[in-house]
Every structure is written in C-alpha cells, then in structure tokens.
C-alpha cells in the first residue's frame, strides 16, 4: 500500500510530476485537440473520467488479473470507458460529439491512462487509485487548457468563443495548426521547469 497522502499525490500529479510537462505523456492529443478551449475542455474532462475509472477498476481487479495479460486487460478497460464516453456524448451532446469527431476515440491511446494504471493502480488501493487517476487527468487538463487558451486567443481572437481581441485583429493562422502547440508547449515546459528548479535551489 502507498504511504503517500492524497494531498501529496495531487501535488505530484498536477505539478511536480505533471504527466505532460514532466513525463511528456499525452503529447499527441496536446497537439491535436488544443485549438479551441471548449473542445479541449470536453476532451480533457473525458480523459479525467477515463483515467479515474480505469484506475479504480484496475485497482479493484488487481488481485484477479494474471500478470501476463494485465496490459491487455488494462487496455480493454480503457477502451471500455472511452467508448462509454463516446456513446453518451453522441446520445446526449450531439453537437459536442460532432465537433470532437474522432478525438474521443483517440483517448484510448493516451499514454497517461495506461501509465497510471500500470504504475499506480496495480499496486495501490481502490480509492487512492481513483484519486490518483483524477488528479493525473486534472494535471493533463490544466496544461492543455493553457495551450488552448493561447491558441484560441491568437488563432481566432476569442476565448471560449467570446471575442476578446479588438476588431481588425489579424488572426495567426499558424496557431490553428498543430505545430503551434509544439512551440507553446515547449515554452510552457521551459517556464514551469525553470520555476520548479528555482524552488529547489531555494530549499
């Protein structure tokens, strides 16, 4: 069983050991789905949900899962929750489902989910694993939302669809294409890392 307190887990997953900024996981979707805030929010909420419940389920089943098929079982559980999200969106939020297109399905390939299932849920209790999944998802969400805010503001001149930039603002087309996320993510990682290192030096 883990010795870590829930507060420490949250701090690690959201900041010190953030899945995107420190572990550099989930980069594919960080590049592809971050050009509008609303799409990013819904996709990352999907990831939070899937990571949380996959961790919970893996943890509950961990004593039953034979070692040699555990990764297949984890993938099956991830796919299960992602398809649930997809079906529910299609039935109850068709507009959202339409604008996310294939990205919901791509949550299955998000390495963060499997990473947490394998690294944490396999060896920890159910509730704390659930919490670990949720906070990892939130850590991912916060970084992606930051990237999306920059991209939407410069690419469309809007935030959450509300016009922010003055009239006559020339939108930056590059911000709408995935390469811009590379630059923005790089800058965010650089800033966060220098901030973290400063903190370490002060200690």
């Amino acid at each position: 069983m883990s010795e870590k307190s829930p507060a420490l887990i949250a701090k690690e997953n959201i900041w010190v050991n953030n899945p995107v900024m420190v572990q550099i996981l989930g980069i594919c979707s960080a590049l592809a789905v971050t050009n509008t805030l609303s799409n990013t929010l819904i996709m990352t909420l999907g990831v939070v949900f899937v990571t949380g419940f996959t961790n919970l389920t893996v943890s509950l089943m961990k004593n039953l899962i034979p070692r040699r098929v555990r990764m297949i079982i984890q993938t099956l559980l991830i796919a299960f929750y992602v398809i649930i999200v997809d079906i529910l969106l299609r039935a109850f939020l068709p507009e959202v489902s339409r604008s996310l297109g294939p990205y919901v399905g791509l949550i299955i390939t998000n390495c963060i989910i499997m990473g947490r299932a394998e690294a944490f849920a396999q060896s920890n209790g159910a509730l704390i694993s659930f919490w670990d999944g949720i906070t990892s998802g939130v850590g991912y969400m916060l970084v992606l939302m930051t990237v999306a805010a920059v991209r939407e503001l410069m690419g469309f001149g809007t935030l959450m669809g509300i016009t922010i930039m003055p009239q006559g603002y020339m939108a930056w087309t590059i911000m709408l294409t995935p390469p811009s996320a590379f630059f923005i993510l790089g800058i965010i990682i650089w800033m966060a890392k220098s901030f973290m290192m400063k903190g370490e030096k002060a200690k």
């Binding site: 050009n35 509008t36 799409n39 339409r98 297109g101 469309f156 087309t173 709408l176 294409t177």
Partner: peptide
C-alpha cells in the same frame, strides 16, 4: 452535417 476538418482552417 458533419466534417473532421481542422477547426479554424
């Protein structure tokens, strides 16, 4: 009705 083109482009 539906498309998968890049938002904004």
């Amino acid at each position: 009705i539906s498309h998968n083109e890049t938002p904004g482009l």
